[in-house]
């Protein structure tokens, strides 16, 4: 599927293979597509697919989880108030925009508890929202801490006198827009935007944060995204959510993600713990692995788990296992989901 950068002819929709669509699901939802989604979205043209997926409510649920992870508002620091819990729905309904949503998250008691005291709060706020090295300007940091403590003063050329004002003034900085877009692009495409592209996008977003969805569609429509074939390592959450979808055919609930995520993030070499968790989930009574297997089952299992068809030697090896040696389906699935390739998308 890789094309020459000089080739500007439209790519036939048929050539947009399963792997690209699968990758899109990982990037937008942090998981592989469910069987029903594969059927529904496998036939849509790319631009309509993007609009359809980004228009879904669960796009914002995934966005919310990504932001909570970025701010490390996990476990005991995870927001529990009605207002924050409903943030994805309010984003989907267009009641709030991305900038406002982030302002709500970092203005919450949970971000405050995660970053206690003026030193930590102001430092983290500016590091995570503006990408600033706070040590470079100790006088500004000192002023931020004084505003946090309730003193009325001017910051970034505007007046404020509370922790809430500090947060509002920070998200209204033009730096916020450009930094937010850069980190989002890096997460999706694995690289930062060049200044020529980033500047107008940042200005557009700063002027109207509701433009975020259009900017996002533009990135995902660009050849840099569509033509990239380099495998990317699944994050631990992607691996976990994908495993539930691929093996159990369902999304994990919050407790399952929370309880398994910390385990899976406990190793620099994720293979041993991923293998243990894979065996845990494969052994679940939720899913039966009864039934015979033939070439069609092996092919579809490769498609489903790796986003590609088996090569001739692979098909031969797996077929001989299931037809001649009667190895159970469970072992075939286990071999694929514990493979190195499955760790990538």
């Amino acid at each position: 599927m890789s094309r020459s950068p000089q080739d500007t002819t439209p790519e036939p929709e048929a050539a947009l293979d399963l792997r690209l669509r699968r990758r899109l699901f990982f990037d937008l939802f942090g998981r592989s597509p469910l069987a029903e989604e594969r059927r529904r979205f496998g036939i849509l043209p790319w631009d309509r697919l993007l609009t359809a997926l980004i228009g879904r409510a669960d796009f914002w649920s995934a966005w919310y989880e990504t932001e909570l992870f970025y701010f490390l508002l996990l476990d005991n620091f995870r927001p529990t108030t009605e207002r924050l819990v409903t943030l994805p729905q309010r984003l989907h309904a267009g009641e709030v925009d991305v900038r406002h949503a982030i302002q709500e998250i970092v203005g919450s008691q949970f971000f405050n508890a995660r970053n206690p005291g003026p030193d930590t709060f102001v430092s983290v706020l500016w590091e995570q929202l503006l990408g600033r090295v706070v040590q470079d300007d100790p006088r500004l940091l000192a002023r931020g801490k004084r505003m946090y403590d309730g003193e009325r003063l001017t910051l970034f050329g505007r007046a404020g006198q509370s922790q809430a004002d500090l947060v509002r003034l920070t998200v209204e900085q033009p730096e916020f827009a450009s930094f937010y877009l850069q980190r989002t692009h890096r997460r999706l495409a694995g690289a930062t935007r060049g200044p020529r592209q980033a500047k107008p996008e940042g200005e557009r977003f700063a002027e109207d944060p509701r433009q975020f969805k259009d900017i996002l569609v533009g990135w995902l429509n660009a050849p840099a995204y569509r033509e990239s074939t380099k495998p990317r390592l699944k994050t631990d959450e992607m691996f976990l959510r994908g495993l539930f979808v691929d093996v159990l055919g369902r999304l994990p609930d919050y407790d399952e993600v929370r309880n398994l995520r910390n385990a899976i993030q406990a190793f620099a070499d994720p293979t041993p713990i991923r293998n243990v968790l894979t065996r845990l989930i494969l052994g679940s009574p939720e899913r039966s692995w009864d039934g015979g297997a033939d070439a069609e089952w092996v092919r579809s299992t490769f498609d489903h788990l790796l986003g590609r068809s088996p090569e001739a030697e692979e098909l031969e090896g797996f077929l001989s296992a299931v037809t001649q040696r009667n190895e159970p389906r469970r072992l075939v699935v286990q071999a694929l989901v514990t493979s190195r390739e499955y760790q990538y998308y």
Partner: peptide, 21 residues
């Protein structure tokens, strides 16, 4: 043993990106 055999049937895959034991 069966898993080893199946794993041996898979094409090689090198992508880097993590500590590997």
């Amino acid at each position: 043993a069966a898993l080893d055999q199946l794993a041996g049937s898979l094409r090689s895959f090198e992508a880097g990106g993590a500590v590997a034991n």
